[in-house]
Amino acid sequence: MLTLVAVATICTSLHLLYTESGTLHQRRAGIQPPNPVAAYVSALDAVRPMLPNDATVTFINRQADQHPMFYLTAAQYALAPTLLDTTARHAWMLVNGKGAPPIPSATPEEPWALVAAINDSVRVYQRRALP
């Protein structure tokens, strides 16, 4: 019985090892993208004309360089367009991060004003871009 379980466990463990090491190898070799940066950038570029403040986008882009998680977050949401407005909420996170430059609409008294503004723009974009 123990032998049967051991064989099954070794097979499943080695299968997982094979799959995951294959994925890692493909990512390192460039066969698979390392992370969905391109999706994020294209989504944000598409939204850019709709945004209220071009400087905000520049700032978000610069911050996103230092916060890979937001690439991933934004890209995931960008890939699922129905959830695209949530990207703006994450953008708010970036804007309010440590050392953020002063952005008029993101004052401490009204921290969600920027989110609301970006959300509105994204919705306009969605209405125009999606069938």
Partner: peptide, 12 residues
């Protein structure tokens, strides 16, 4: 092998 799998999953 499980420990290696955890590392690989985290890298991916």
């Amino acid at each position: 092998v499980t420990a290696i799998n955890l590392v690989l999953l985290s890298l991916n």
